[in-house]
Design a binder for these strands. Sequence first.
DNA 1: CGGCTACTTGAACAGAGTCAACTATGGTGG
DNA 2: CCACCATAGTTGACTCTGTTCAAGTAGCCG
Lengths: 206, 206
Amino acid sequence: MQAGSPILQDGQDSPHIYTILSGWAMRSKTFEDGRRQVLNFALVGDLIGLQSVLFDKMHHTVEALSDARLCVFSRQRLWELYQEHPALGFDITWLAAREEQMLADHLANIGQRSAFVRLAYMIIHLFDRARRAGVVKGKRLAAPITQDQLADAMGLSLVHTNKMLKRLRDAGWVEFKRNEITILDEVKLAEAADYDLGERPARPFI
Amino acid sequence: MQAGSPILQDGQDSPHIYTILSGWAMRSKTFEDGRRQVLNFALVGDLIGLQSVLFDKMHHTVEALSDARLCVFSRQRLWELYQEHPALGFDITWLAAREEQMLADHLANIGQRSAFVRLAYMIIHLFDRARRAGVVKGKRLAAPITQDQLADAMGLSLVHTNKMLKRLRDAGWVEFKRNEITILDEVKLAEAADYDLGERPARPFI
DNA sequence: CGGCTACTTGAACAGAGTCAACTATGGTGG
DNA sequence: CCACCATAGTTGACTCTGTTCAAGTAGCCG
């Protein structure tokens, strides 16, 4: 899958779900007036398109942010999987519930926090997830995310997002570049974002 | 379950999941500083606490808004269910995915729309769900939701929420009272909220 | 009747949006 | 190899939506 190309589109009926084997994707919802909400950024191990299989139709768009390798899984086989391997069916529910939980956190973040803290939270959360997924090198994360996409994820304007990123940079906590996020002071950042860097229970891989 | 009492609490490990048989519940997340994000309002047929079973710990609180009847299901039995009745396991995944989709809509609503439209959307969405669940009588819905809770659901201040409700009332579209929501002009409301009143695929009941 | 809790309304303020102009950066073709 | 163009990022000035503060009113239950 090539960088920038759509994997699943809003309204479309795709008989497949995908697992990301490598690379980045972005789930988003676009309104008629052009406004867009980025639901989240997906990386290695994330499940994509469960909705198209369960509801016969996508309710948001998924696009590749980088070149990505995907593992395809058909609707038909999903059902067989539930019958023949209940443990794997259970794992899929687990992944769906985890996805829901991340959305809930994102919602609380956007609904209740100021722009600055919001951004701090999003960045450290992204970084932490990426680290657990094993794609972080030291303090650096290769993430092909633009400020525009970040702004739409945060429910902020591009301009204001840029200004808050400047504050994070000036504070010496984070560098956010076109293809790379660097966390310079993780403790301070986590503190400001009220983010818990602790353990997480192990996750299944499909 | 009595009105106002907690069903599941953030951080708690409960070995049960619940299905709502009657009444209303509210899922929310509260921060240290007292701010609270209401994730959604749950009604008949909704599944509650899947997270506590899958992750050994709740990441938000669920409380009863009205007196409610719940159907209890243990962690142990959930796993048995997946093994013995794959179709029911599939249904649980379905419900989890639907929950995720509603959160995604909620997120997009809060992230991208103005206070007025946001409220319009939330109210018609709530009403529409309730109608499909069969708890609406004519244009009226008995919903025990306070403006305070509504404000926290919208990511708005109580004061501003109140003012937007006044605008909806003055427009002659909606009456929002302590225990009752009345939709006076559903078409106009749906139009303003850009809400699709069309069909939905059938849903499973556990 | 008193004391809750929920709701209302106005005024002042501030965080975030919009508009506009400008600067980097990177890819492409001459 | 360089010039050009498109996309991405930066910054300042002004506006406005939504917050906060404050001071009420309405309704309900003991």
